[in-house]
Design a protein around this nucleic acid. Sequence first.
DNA 1: GCCAACGTTGGC
DNA 2: GCCAACGTTGGC
Length: 170
Amino acid sequence: MFRAFRPRRVTTMTPARRQYWLVKSEPTTFSFDDLLASPDRTTTWEGVRNFQARNFMRDGMKAGDRVLFYHSSCEPPAVVGIAEVGREAYPDPTQFDPSSDYHDPKSRPRDPTWVMVDLRAVAALPRPVDITELRANPGLEGLELLRRGSRLSVHPVSREHFDAIVRMAK
DNA sequence: GCCAACGTTGGC
DNA sequence: GCCAACGTTGGC
């Protein structure tokens, strides 16, 4: 059965206004392949429980923003794909679910502490760019991911750094 | 408000 | 498995 063609782009935002981000995920928990295999190649980005990361999602992430998808706690850690922000920040229901690993008993439904966004796969990189390569590129100086001791699982990336990483994958 | 203890992240 | 670097918690 045929379906009418629907444009895949979620926004008409021009590239000039777009912001860029990086999110980390442990591939054993949720990989970029998992994202590609998800319905409409989209997932909810639930489970962020760090205030700085939450603030970036809540205040910064806009539909159509581009997101580098990074695999952490694996060998080798690497940027593996590009996603985009679909739905902007809304309450993360897992904070109210006592059976969830992400349950937060202190959060009140009338004033939720934690939010999530929807992320949609744009494309896998032609090849992963691992962290040793990233560290070896002087053009990436200042990238939050590479800062000593950095653990932020959601953070902004400059357009220059984003483009440089995409170029490295070619 | 301070800060020590603790738990977690995540590269190595 | 190690441990540095964080963020959070809770006693005071």
